[in-house]
Design a protein around this nucleic acid. Sequence first.
DNA 1: TTTGAAATTACAACTGT
DNA 2: ACAGTTGTAATTTCAAA
Lengths: 152, 152
Amino acid sequence: MDRVDRRLVELLQQDAAQSYSALGQAVGLSTGATHERVRKLRERGVIRRTTVEVDPAAVGGGILSFVLVRSTSWMGDSAELFAAHPEIQEAHIIAGSASVLVKVRTATTEQLQDVLRRLYEIEGVGSTEAIVVLQTFFERPVAPREPDPGID
Amino acid sequence: MDRVDRRLVELLQQDAAQSYSALGQAVGLSTGATHERVRKLRERGVIRRTTVEVDPAAVGGGILSFVLVRSTSWMGDSAELFAAHPEIQEAHIIAGSASVLVKVRTATTEQLQDVLRRLYEIEGVGSTEAIVVLQTFFERPVAPREPDPGID
DNA sequence: TTTGAAATTACAACTGT
DNA sequence: ACAGTTGTAATTTCAAA
């Protein structure tokens, strides 16, 4: 995971459809060497998969919300209960007064209300607090960062 | 945007590196027809771009947090001020008592603290409340959903 | 939908460090 | 051993019939 690897990751995040030769040009490596670098990044799990980025509004997810879910019991084994709802895009266990934070995309606020109703049906869920997004400034891939030098 | 289009989007989200012939097999279309469908999905902006999904921990983003930013003034034109910080992966204007919600990835809690310090330097930022993620259940692409029938 | 040329990927064998 | 280079066969893309 050197400078070149980080640059390759960045370039692939921007456009994973470009050829290895174009990629190689950009980092100053041959096509074959670039191919090998990327293969290893995949093998090591740094690159998990190649995907497409989709416009949420075009597939019925125009309304974005974050929901704080407070629970009365241990939620650590409830991943599948949240994953069962296709409108839930992310779910995280959090520190603090709430227990779970979920990111929800629905076409309408009616559908959001329906998701909240279904959340209450999950065992141990006490209350929910929905935060509705009015405008998204930006959503972007993780920026690969140089690790701290580390003092030896 | 029919059933086949939605299925194509789903398949591409799972693996955008697969060939059009494999994709066509899966939806029962010829290679050429599949190619044309996907081209149009890109043209219409349903598919924004092809990217790679990266392991955040491998690129210095092992600690995930959400930060509620309360402000004392209008933040609607401050997108660039948040985007200037590479650790901030998302920023949204929200309804409710806080004003902006940001998603932050850092390698350490020290770096998170540093991001919070820099957030306070933004004009109009009153207070922040950091929610640290202990465990991520899942993060997945938007699920393409069938539109409501609509009662005519 | 099928065809075929151009481009790209995947996989060699080889070279220098 | 390791990472990179060049060369080549097998696929895939993509426009045209």
